[in-house]
């Protein structure tokens, strides 16, 4: 009981600091996601269009994701130094695989007869992509984005090790100070963020599938 009052008190007293860290966390993840979408969608499309490139692209992004997060971030600091950008790039690398793979699968999954109807209507390959294949792959893309952002919220907690302050700051200083309160004060918002991201993107995913059945 004491602990909960203590924690609540700490969180209220430090609310502006915690809020700032949470926002920082969100911004970092958002940048990483945006980059991953920006690069991942075209890569997924290229993989779907040029079947020969598909295994190369997919396994490359796969390998990126297999590198342990701390190791990847450490390696990145060798080239980019410490700071916010380094973390964004790390998150970007981590999120690339689910986005690329799901875009690729989403496009591949489009029913052959739908493609044929599009081609038969006289659509150019670009129109086919823009009007048919890509819109139909969006539910898959949404699922990828959801997985990616949950991972990214977690990885972003490692921020303080590479000089990117966010909710990880509370957690890690909590570890060194052996302060349960600090650890929880960082862990709870971080978990909530992951839950909210999962929930909201899940909703988006369902909506994007609606009426298409």
């Amino acid at each position: 009981m004491d602990f909960i009052t203590g924690l609540t008190q700490y969180m209220i007293e430090n609310r502006s600091e915690l809020l700032a860290l949470t926002i920082e966390h969100i911004v970092m993840v958002a940048y990483g996601m945006a980059l991953a979408l920006l690069v991942g969608i075209p890569l997924g499309i290229i993989a779907a269009r040029y079947q020969k490139l598909a295994p190369i692209i997919i396994s490359a992004t796969n390998i990126l994701q297999l590198i342990p997060s701390l190791a990847m971030l450490a390696i990145l600091t060798l080239y980019m130094g410490l700071g916010f950008q380094t973390m964004v790039i790390g998150l970007f690398f981590y999120s690339l695989m689910p986005i690329v793979r799901n875009t690729y699968v989403g496009i591949k999954e489009v029913d052959d007869s739908v493609i044929e109807a599009g081609r038969g209507s006289g659509m150019t390959p670009l129109q086919l992509l823009g009007k048919i294949q890509f819109p139909l792959s969006i539910p898959f893309l949404m699922a990828g984005l959801r997985v990616a952002s949950v991972i990214a919220v977690a990885v972003a907690c490692l921020g303080p090790y590479i000089g990117a302050e966010a909710l990880g700051k509370e957690i890690i200083s909590g570890i060194s100070l052996q302060s349960d309160v600090k650890i929880y004060a960082g862990a709870i918002p971080a978990t909530l963020l992951a839950l909210i991201a999962d929930f909201m993107l899940g909703k988006l995913e369902t909506r994007s599938k609606q009426r298409m059945a």
Partner: peptide
């Protein structure tokens, strides 16, 4: 005009 064998409406 092309009516394909499997209908192939655009579901979205």
């Amino acid at each position: 005009g092309y009516v394909i064998q499997n209908i192939g409406l655009f579901p979205h």
